[in-house]
């Protein structure tokens, strides 16, 4: 994970502010652990910096929620979720995004002290690809 004085650290401050309401809500009702929340914020900052993404509540709410819930599943040691062949097919030619998610989940797994299962990596990558595609569209 990057230090808070790095570009990714500056990004993390913006990410924390942008998604505070959502992550507060999920943490307060016990759906998301504090560790998973902090990892979500760090991973989002890393991915946004790495892939030059602008993440906000309008475009990234689903991804943020998915990431926080997924990291909580791993943090709590829940049973591994099933892989979706449809999701796997969606990312078949998205190596850049898959590599980015795999890298940040490598960092996260060290802090979680658990491996991040392949289906989780796949679902995170599908969400990330949707974001990347939207931001690649020309402005109207």
């Amino acid at each position: 994970m990057t230090e808070t004085s790095s570009p990714s650290g500056d990004m993390q401050v913006r990410i924390e502010a942008e998604f505070a309401e959502r992550l507060d809500m999920l943490e307060e009702c016990g759906q998301v652990t504090n560790l998973a929340r902090r990892l979500t914020e760090m991973c989002l900052a890393d991915l946004a910096t790495d892939l030059d993404l602008t993440l906000d509540e309008n475009n990234a709410a689903q991804f943020v929620t998915h990431l926080a819930i997924a990291l909580t599943r791993i943090n709590r040691g829940d049973p591994e979720i099933a892989m979706s062949a449809v999701a796997a097919e969606e990312i078949a030619d998205r190596q850049r995004e898959l590599d980015a998610v795999t890298r940040v989940m490598g960092d996260a797994s060290r802090l979680l002290q658990r491996e991040v299962p392949e289906p989780e990596i796949t679902y995170m990558t599908v969400h990330l690809c949707a974001l990347v595609d939207v931001q690649a569209e020309p402005a109207p």
Partner: peptide, 16 residues
Amino acid sequence: TCWSGGGGALAAATAI
């Protein structure tokens, strides 16, 4: 909906 159906689909609804 979400891709996994395993939480993100209903996370906000569960909280609210």
